[in-house]
Amino acid sequence: MASARGSCRVARAIESVISLSRLTDASSGLPPNSSVGNGSESSRPAWGPRCLDCLEGATGAGAALALRALIACAYLVLCAVGLVGNVLVLVLVRSQQRRRPSLLNCFLLNLAATDLQFVLTLPFWAADTVRDFSWPFGGAMCKVVLTLTVLNMYASSFFLSAMSVARYCAVVGALRPSRRGAPPAACVCGFLWAAAVLATAPTTLFATAVWVGGEPLCLLRFPDRGPDWLALYHLQKIAVAFVLPLATLGTCSLLLLRFLRRRRASWSSGVRPRRRSRVTRALACVLLAFLLCWLPNQALTLWGVLIKLDAIPWDRAYFLAQAYLFPVSICLAHANSCLNPLLYCLLRRDFRQGLREMCGRAKGTPNLRPGSEGRAPASTLSNNQA
């Protein structure tokens, strides 16, 4: 019992450093103005060493281990789904981009690339989670993995925003006279990557592995003096990686729906209304997926920032919310990188058609779609001759 209470004091000391500096317990050994764990998800503030094992009367060590194992398994499942989904997106979009280049497809390629490199970090976070957030991979890997994780958070948000703008321009441009002078796709993508790297710079500078209470932790260690770096870090995350993309997605969706509604009067019945319905469903799915995946995590992050700034008092409800709700919010936020391929490819008819063709070639069956009778035998003959 004494050991459990001692562990609980360590966990609460870690929590206090992150959320309320006036409660810091020097016996914890955690450096002040530091943030434990995965920096893209509010750094898992309540998940210090053995914190779930020591929640008084809430759970035992076995339940805590089961919860950590469940979260680790969720990371591995997300990794597998994300690998398959994003690789398919890269293959299909690259093939389509060669035939018919477009700015939207260029953004989609970059989004799939950043999501793909992100899902490769999930096995590291799975191992970190199942070991009760004891980081076994060393300081260099801590910096690399944490940097890639946060880079994906910003890059995916920026490319999602750019895709919503590009989709609006594509639909409006298809129904209006074309205008020249659009910036090259490479320049726009380069600017977005540069902005994501700049936003990730604090993570790259301050990510490190530190031994605390005999356990190595992968954390963000900010300078002790100066402004409240940790609060500024999380405020930047909320504003740049959530509020700005959400406002862009919502604004573009509303503008596009208003534009389609105004054009409806001049459309003939049949094709145009069906197109409007497809666009409306796609916009709703993209916006809802981003909101549902990121809102819980960002809300808990904002709660911690308000406590850090003494705007609201710290209480046990916050500690329990961080311990139990925060892992769910992390999984939801990670799942967004796996949902992107489904949302932006499976909702588009041309990508579904390309996926069917790819599966048909993998099975060795000819393409039997109308109008393809002449092409399939020619392709088969060419392969036989080769």
Rank of each mutant, 00 (worst) to 15 (best):
G57N: 12
L76D: 09
L339R: 14
T280M: 10
D310Q: 02
A170M: 07
A4F: 06
G364C: 05
L67Y: 11
L111I: 10
V243C: 00
W125D: 02
G6N: 12
P245T: 05
A166P: 14
R225A: 15
W294V: 00
T208C: 14
S27W: 04
R22Y: 03
I330D: 12
N383K: 12
V84I: 11
L220V: 07
N336P: 06
C73Q: 05
A4P: 03
S40T: 08
S382C: 00
A299Y: 12
Q298P: 09
S266V: 05
L111K: 15
L122W: 13
G304I: 02
T129R: 08
C293G: 04
L343Y: 09
A113M: 02
A182W: 00
S253H: 09
G82C: 01
N384W: 06
S28H: 06
I18Q: 12
F133E: 05
A13E: 09
A335T: 03
G354M: 05
G374V: 04
G190T: 03
N105T: 10
T59A: 13
S7D: 15
L302F: 01
A69N: 12
R356I: 03
A239P: 01
P296H: 13
L342N: 02
A72G: 09
W211I: 14
E373Y: 01
A63G: 15
T280W: 09
E15L: 13
G214D: 14
A376P: 02
C293R: 08
A174N: 13
P223T: 11
P377H: 01
R180Q: 10
T114W: 08
L295E: 09
S164Q: 04
V210E: 07
R349V: 14
Y324S: 14
L30E: 07
L175W: 11
N384P: 06
E357V: 01
R221F: 13
L205P: 02
L347P: 04
S7W: 15
M358R: 02
S178C: 06
T204H: 07
A69C: 03
V286C: 05
L256M: 10
N297P: 00
A182Y: 02
N105Q: 12
R176G: 02
F242W: 13
L65P: 00
T365Q: 13
R131C: 03
V243M: 00
R369C: 06
L306W: 06
A174V: 07
A317L: 04
R68F: 03
G60V: 08
A2S: 15
A386C: 01
F107V: 07
F158W: 11
E41H: 13
S19C: 15
L55I: 00
N152M: 02
G173T: 06
L232H: 14
G190D: 07
L104S: 09
F222T: 14
L288A: 14
S16H: 07
L381G: 09
I307S: 00
K143Y: 01
I330L: 12
G48H: 08
G139P: 04
R274T: 01
L217T: 12
S19T: 15
C8G: 07
D25T: 11
S27I: 02
L192K: 07
S161D: 01
I14K: 00
A61G: 05
R221H: 11
V210T: 09
C285W: 12
R352P: 10
T24Q: 10
C189F: 05
D228Q: 06
N38G: 14
P370E: 08
R275M: 04
A265H: 13
R167Y: 00
C142D: 01
F222K: 10
L20S: 04
F259C: 03
L346N: 05
A26T: 03
R369V: 07
D132H: 08
